[in-house]
């Protein structure tokens, strides 16, 4: 019997240099993060509820997941960015960590508030689509500027982040809403852990076919199938989370407020 000794491809990560000064992204994402924290602080004080702040802090902690999915989704960042931390052989830029605050933290909190009011699933679908579109825009800018790059093969290289960012605020919002309804006062600070759970849960549960295909020697047709399956799973998570939120709101209120 012949055996193959396969060496993990740890050396296929390209070294990237940004075409522009990535301080632009740092300033842009930094401003968004500061604004998000300001909104969260005002909301927390007015409502005497720390949930908005907890969601934003949790989003910062959640950014620790980034290198796992950069490795799986084959994403690399420019080496000349201000680095927040290094893991999986990747330098994670500070601007990216700050970007988690509005997209994963504040948006999820807003979704949780909408769910508590019994929002129609259709509006949650629109929100998910908006989250997806906004990430596509940012990804396009970042790739054009060579601030980061996807180095996997097409078509899967284009599905690395944006599709998964559609379900993240919906699922995260649902968990904040459902778990938050059982906690009162400062005990709601425990919900700081929700974003760190929701984002990787979405990425791993919906993205695994894509990650598998990106890291396997499979025909093009299988790559397309894996991509379609990942997109379908993302859509399914949005639909299920929206339906669950609706059912929960109806159980509590007997109908939308």
């Amino acid at each position: 019997m012949t055996t193959r000794v396969l060496i993990p491809a740890l050396t296929d990560v390209p070294v990237l240099h940004s075409g522009i000064d990535t301080a632009v992204f740092l300033v842009g994402f930094g401003a968004l993060a500061v604004a998000s924290f300001a909104v969260a602080a005002v909301v927390s004080v007015r409502r005497r509820d720390p949930l908005a702040l907890a969601a934003c802090v949790g989003a910062l902690v959640c950014a620790l997941n980034e290198p796992i999915y950069d490795y799986l989704g084959k994403i690399v960042y420019a080496a000349d960015s201000t680095t927040a931390y290094t893991a999986f052989g990747r330098h994670i830029p500070l601007f990216l960590v700050l970007g988690y605050v509005p997209w994963v933290g504040l948006l999820s909190y807003a979704v949780a508030r909408l769910m508590a009011r019994g929002v129609a699933p259709r509006r949650l679908y629109a929100l998910a689509l908006g989250s997806f579109a906004s990430v596509v825009l940012v990804e396009t800018l970042g790739n054009l500027a060579h601030a980061w790059s996807y180095y996997g093969r097409p078509p899967l290289k284009y599905l690395g982040v944006a599709p998964q960012m559609a379900p993240v605020p919906i699922l995260c919002g649902l968990l904040l809403y459902v778990l938050g309804s059982r906690l009162r006062g400062w005990r709601r600070l425990w919900l700081v852990f929700v974003p760190t759970v929701a984002l990787p849960a979405v990425y791993a549960s919906a993205g695994w076919p894509m990650y598998l295909a990106l890291h396997s020697d499979v025909p093009k047709v299988v790559q397309y199938l894996a991509g379609f399956l990942t997109l379908a799973l993302c859509a399914a998570i949005v639909a299920c989370a929206a339906a669950a939120a609706r059912a929960r709101a109806l159980t509590i209120h007997g109908g939308p407020a």
Partner: peptide, 22 residues
């Protein structure tokens, strides 16, 4: 498989990060 991925993603990330960091 979705549950499996979600479970590992949600609860195993601290050790995954630590094992791959200095």
């Amino acid at each position: 498989p979705m549950c499996y991925g979600a479970t590992y993603g949600a609860i195993a990330w601290p050790i995954f990060i630590a094992l791959h960091s200095h």
